[in-house]
């Protein structure tokens, strides 16, 4: 038998997951709108951010209400505080997807500089990190969360690679600068999304183990 409070906690988890799936879709659509030069999709992605923002506020309000009315303790307290922090990271990842879509709108107006290869790979890894960290959140799986943390380096590496490659374009031909800079932005946005997924995974470790691992060296985690 689950109590009213447990049902409220389940509903909270559901909302966080819903926000997570909307963010995942936002990332994938934003990158798709760039790669496939689909400006309609980019505009839709930007427009849908309103839904994310509403849900973000709603989750915060739910958490504050639960803290005030239920005085949660131990695992319940960690679940609610984790939900609050995760939501902030998800909302920021959503905003970064909007940024990607905005760059896509601009880039789609000009001739394509080069085929996008690393950008979709980065997006795929970042999305996977986000998905798995939320999966770890629901299942209270600290091992999976810790595994997610190890993937951040790949995204950082790709970001560095994209930057160097575009630098080469810019040195060779100054007319590419405007487009190249925008693509480096997109790369940076994706790198930031992976950082937000990392934050979520770190919070999941706190949720499960009660230990804050942010700013810790990897061998101490």
């Amino acid at each position: 038998m689950s109590t009213v409070f447990e049902k409220e906690l389940d509903a909270l988890k559901e909302k966080v997951l819903k926000l997570g799936s909307l963010v995942e879709k936002a990332i994938s659509d934003a990158v798709k709108s760039l790669v496939e030069r689909n400006s309609t999709l980019a505009a839709e992605t930007i427009d849908r951010d309103r839904i994310l923002n509403t849900l973000d506020v709603e989750i915060d309000e739910d958490c504050i209400r639960l803290i005030a009315l239920r005085q949660p303790r131990a695992g319940d307290l960690r679940l609610i505080t984790t939900a609050m922090k995760i939501t902030t990271d998800l909302e920021r990842a959503g905003d970064l997807s909007v940024d990607i879509a905005e760059r896509a709108l601009e880039l789609n107006e000009e001739p394509q500089l080069k085929p996008y290869i690393d950008i979709p790979r980065m997006a795929e890894i970042a999305q996977g990190m986000l998905r798995d960290s939320l999966d770890a959140f629901v299942k209270r799986d600290a091992a999976l969360a810790k595994e997610v943390l190890t993937r951040d380096d790949m995204v950082d590496q790709l970001n560095y690679q994209v930057f160097n490659e575009l630098l080469f374009f810019m040195i060779q031909d100054p007319r590419t600068v405007s487009r190249a800079v925008k693509i480096t932005y997109v790369s940076k946005y994706l790198e930031r999304i992976a950082d937000h997924a990392t934050n979520i995974a770190e919070m999941v470790v706190y949720l499960v183990e009660g230990k804050i691992i942010r700013h810790m060296l990897p061998d101490k985690i």
Binding site: T3, F5, R73, A74, G75, D76, E209, G210, K211
Partner: peptide, 19 residues
């Protein structure tokens, strides 16, 4: 503060969360 944020024992957890 440890007991109320992250107790080690499952029974403690269940008791203080009212289960």
């Amino acid at each position: 503060d440890k007991i109320f944020t992250a107790p080690s024992n499952k029974l403690t957890e269940e008791y203080i969360t009212g289960r």
